[in-house]
Design a protein around this nucleic acid. Structure first.
Lengths: 204, 204
DNA sequence: CATGCAATGTTTACGATGTCAACATTTTGT
DNA sequence: ACAAAATGTTGACATCGTAAACATTGCATG
């Protein structure tokens, strides 16, 4: 497949990959369709053969990010399959580490109006989610822990929402530079979760 | 002050106010300098006499939002000055309510690269913050609670970070539509904080 | 193999935008 | 009263998202 073909080969995939790269290099605000096109060595209108518009490309990039985020959480389950407590704590740390190490992704997620999928629902003490999401993985690990401890199921919603909010909150605060933590933030996450898990036990 | 003067009167303030309005009407993405200028009945380049560039205007609008956010938390202290526990719980609810009711503001805060002020620092179990911020108010209420309970000061950082993360996390998750909660989210916040505060006592 | 259609890429054009420079008007300090 | 500072306007330019018209390539069907 020579480089100077008229047809590209797999432009769609390269647009997503280079777009993700550009996003990390220049940030969300100066991300543009035309720049991505240039990076792929293609004319500025070529992307329109693969995406309806800019938002569509951004949505697919976001999808890509969401998958890599989920994968990094699944990795934790693979690494620590046998100790539920250790697993959920490590997952919390992986969650925060990912967001802190990829702050630009957060902006994508918050802006793309793609996250508004309502794919996660809470009702009657049950979670519903349609696709494989990062939260799905987190949920799986958390419920496993609650199951092992024989926590009554009617309390799961509160327990899981608490853990999720804790982890998501500290992740966003640090990643967004809303706070500057002079210390090991992963240690902080561990302490917070450790304390929470202890309480889960004491409460029942 | 007649309307058809050459000079406007207080264009700077009106740009901020109308900008804030436009932001809420159309959202962050379709916010533009030129639209704000038109809304103020002024030519498209007029804003440049008051702001260096678009980012500067956005920064000042964000400042405005931050002030209104802080004011809504201060309101809680004024309303419930005598019951520390009730106060911190109500403050958490006010925090989440504000973010959920003004989801567009969140985008501003996350994008403007204005929040990267490092105005809040954590080190050696102490918080430092230079300006009057929403977190400053939250911090004041939380420390007051910890003081009343005579919690040792070396534990304050962890306790406050936990409360803040909890509240911020659930606020962001709901406001961003990452989750759809079929119920009273303020009740959820109350339960989460209630449980946390109980633990603060039991831990000491 | 030929040929015509679908897929993919290019060129050109348009309106909206951020920004700047040159110019116009008003206000203000002395 | 008048010069200078403050404030607003006009016009221009590059960049951007997007659409239409056109060009090239690959593939399926005869």
């Amino acid at each position: 497949m020579s480089k100077d073909k008229y047809h590209h080969g797999d432009l769609k995939k390269e647009l997503i990959n280079k777009g993700l790269y550009l996003l990390n290099q220049e940030g969300y605000e100066s991300f543009s369709l035309r720049k991505v096109a240039v990076m792929c060595g293609v004319s500025h209108a070529a992307p329109y053969k693969h995406f309806e518009n800019k938002d569509q490309l951004i949505m697919e990039i976001t999808q890509e990010v969401a998958n890599s985020f989920r994968a990094s959480l699944e990795e934790v389950i693979i690494q620590y399959p046998d100790d539920p407590k250790f697993q959920i704590i490590e997952m919390g740390k992986a969650y925060v580490r990912y967001m802190v190490e990829n702050p630009e992704y957060l902006k994508f997620i918050f802006l793309s109006s793609f996250n508004h999928t309502k794919s996660i629902k809470l009702a009657n003490n049950n979670f519903f989610y349609e696709e494989k999401t990062a939260f799905g993985v987190f949920y799986q690990s958390a419920t496993n822990y609650l199951k092992v401890l024989q926590i009554p199921q009617e309390n799961w919603t509160l327990e899981i929402m608490t853990m999720w909010s804790l982890v998501h909150g500290i992740a966003v605060l640090i990643s967004n530079y809303s706070i500057e933590y002079d210390g090991d933030y992963l240690e902080l996450v561990e302490q917070m979760l450790q304390e929470k898990l202890k309480m889960v036990i004491e409460n029942h």
